[in-house]
Each structure stands twice: as structure tokens, then as C-alpha cells.
């Protein structure tokens, strides 16, 4: 049985006004109660994918299709999309220090989001804010609401950020590197929190570069390289049996935390391509150890079983 997708992105391409393509074929979906990890290195377009779903890139031209709750977002009017933002879909950003307005209290900023979407009085909104902060495990939530961002620790700021994102009970929560700016012990706290949220039924899209984070808090994963999704599947499948040579190399490059210490870490030679020099064939072919002549044509996504897809000629018929 397969859950009805909450969000479905089909062949999303994103162009700069000068014609450079930042995303060149992103296809993925998120169902309610699922958590999709979008993994990739810097410049792979994982944050851009998230921002396009939110509609926060007005200056870029998007082609393809993004369907959210059965509505096509790319043809939707800005006014309609704005109603979705913050209420039906919400976003958590990497650095809660800069993501909050530094000059207003945390509480005021959460109140604002609540009152943008719900007809509540200031007083009622604040009561809800305090309740949300409490649910996120912020000690003394009433006091915390009156604090300014710089007066809270990184972990508490990120909790407040999540409280704000959840204030209107969104169906989809997008988290862009939510723990990268945090220390490991605090990161663990936030990951546990995110996992609880998904278990409560929200669809989560988690953008990260850390395979460990994906393993801990996601059910599914999509691997992005140079603006293209190269592999998708459940976390268990992809992490234990990566199919795409890029996913394999990426996993191998992580230094192990137990077992014997390798003499050298396996590396990927070269650098990821910049958008204007993206190969017309398989985007990974210039760095791929298994490159073949037929890599010169961009491979389609090949279905490799239930929800498992890979874009590589090695698995062609």
C-alpha cells in the first residue's frame, strides 16, 4: 500500500534570468507521515528545491511541476501561495540566529505567524505561542517568549524556530539543514524532536548533507548531484545498498566511527560541475569510476522495485 503523496515534484528545472540552469530535473515526492531526506553536497541544489516548494525564489524561472495537496503550485497565483506558506507548509532554516529578526522578541515573531493565518487576538496568539514553546521543550516558555534571539542558546533558538514553523499545524514541514549550526548533543535533541513530529503525521522534507542525520530522522531519501536527483528510495535501501556510483562514493567517503581505521579514505576525484558546465549526459560521469560510452546521454530514472529509483546506465535493461 502506498500513501497518497502530499507533495509531488516532477522534473523541476530552475533557471537564472541569464539562462544558467540551477536545477536540471528534480523528481521526488513526500507523503504524510513520511520524512524525506534530500541529501547532496553544497551546490547540488537541495536548498533550491526546498525554496522552490515554498515559493521563495521569485526571481528564478521554474519549469516542471510541483503539486501540493493536489494543487499545482507553479501556476498558482502568488496571493494563493502566500496563504499556503506558513500555514499549510512551513520551513525551518539552518541558522536560527540569523533566521529570526534580531530586533524583535521570539514570542512576537511567533505571534506574528499565528496572526497572519488565524483570526486570533494578540492575547490568544501569545497563549498559543507559549503552549508551542512548551511542547518543544523550552524551559520557562513564557519568559523565553519575551527574550530576543541573541539571548537564547542555539538549541533553544532552533526549538523556537520549530515552534514557529508548527504554529499553524502545517501538513508539510521543510527543514533546511536544521542541525548543522548546532553542537552534536543539541543536534541529537532536535533530531528526536523532528522524529516525533513526523510520527504525529506531518510530512517532513529534511535537507541535509549528513547521511547520519538522514539515517536518524528520515524514512525516505533522495540523493541530489549537480541539480539532478540521481537516486531515491527508503533510507534502509539506499544507505545499506546504494546503487548509484555517486551515492556509493559519498557513503564511502565518510570516516567510520568504529571498526578498523582505514589507511586512506576513499575519495571522489575532481569537483562537482558548476551550473554552466553541467554535462549534457549523466551529470556524475566525469568523476565516475564506472563511466561508459552510453553515459553521454542523460539516463532516465529506472524503477528498481517499490519506490526505489536510480538514474544510471548500469541498471538499464
Amino acid at each position: 500500500m502506498r500513501a497518497e503523496p502530499l507533495l509531488q515534484i516532477q522534473d523541476l528545472r530552475l533557471e537564472l534570468p541569464d539562462g544558467r540552469r540551477l536545477l536540471d530535473g528534480v523528481t521526488l515526492d513526500v507523503a504524510a507521515g513520511q520524512s524525506l531526506g534530500v541529501v547532496g553536497e553544497s551546490g547540488s541544489g537541495k536548498s533550491l528545491t526546498a525554496m522552490s516548494v515554498m515559493g521563495l525564489l521569485p526571481r528564478l524561472k521554474a519549469k516542471g511541476s510541483i503539486v501540493f495537496q493536489k494543487h499545482e503550485l507553479l501556476s498558482m497565483r502568488e496571493k494563493e501561495r502566500r496563504k499556503l506558506r506558513g500555514s499549510q507548509m512551513a520551513m525551518i532554516f539552518q541558522d536560527p540566529m540569523t533566521a529570526f529578526l534580531p530586533v524583535r522578541s521570539i514570542g512576537a515573531q511567533i505571534d506574528e505567524q499565528i496572526r497572519l493565518h488565524q483570526p486570533l487576538s494578540r492575547h490568544e496568539a501569545r497563549a498559543l505561542t507559549v503552549k508551542l514553546l512548551e511542547r518543544m521543550g523550552v524551559p520557562d516558555p513564557e519568559m523565553a517568549a519575551r527574550r530576543y534571539p541573541h539571548q537564547l542558546s542555539g538549541g533553544l533558538r532552533q526549538r523556537a524556530m520549530i515552534a514557529m514553523a508548527l504554529s499553524c499545524s502545517p501538513a508539510l514541514l521543510i527543514a533546511d539543514e536544521p542541525t548543522t549550526a548546532l553542537d552534536v548533543t543539541v543536534q541529537a535533541q532536535i533530531l528526536v524532536l523532528l522524529r516525533t513530529l513526523r510520527e504525529e503525521g506531518a510530512g517532513v522534507m529534511l535537507i541535509t548533507h549528513d547521511m547520519g542525520v538522514v539515517a536518524q530522522s528520515c524514512t525516505h531519501v533522495a540523493v541530489l548531484y549537480a541539480g539532478v536527483v540521481v537516486e531515491r528510495g527508503t533510507v534502509v535501501d539506499v544507505l545499506q545498498q546504494p546503487l548509484h556510483p555517486y551515492t556509493q562514493a559519498l557513503l564511502a567517503a565518510i570516516p567510520p566511527l568504529d571498526g578498523p581505521k582505514p589507511e586512506r579514505l576513499p575519495t571522489i576525484p575532481g569537483q562537482p560541475p558548476v551550473p554552466e558546465a553541467r554535462p549534457s549526459g549523466c551529470v556524475f560521469s566525469p568523476r565516475c569510476p564506472k563511466v561508459r560510452p552510453d553515459c553521454a546521454v542523460r539516463p532516465d530514472m529506472i524503477e528498481m522495485g517499490e519506490g526505489r529509483r536510480v538514474a544510471c546506465v548500469l541498471y538499464g535493461a
Binding site: G154, T185, L191, V192, A215, S217, Q240
Partner: peptide, 22 residues
């Protein structure tokens, strides 16, 4: 031990994290 446990890994679920901040 807490620091090591807090590192998210593919092979095992996260143990309950340390409470609070430094």
C-alpha cells in the same frame, strides 16, 4: 560517551540525548 552517542549513525537509533545546554 554522550558525545559519541549523539553522533547520528546509519546503523543504530539515537540513544536518549543529553538534556539541556552546555
Amino acid at each position: 560517551k554522550a558525545l559519541l552517542d549523539a553522533v547520528p549513525r546509519p546503523d543504530r537509533p539515537l540513544p536518549p540525548p543529553l538534556a539541556g545546554d552546555v
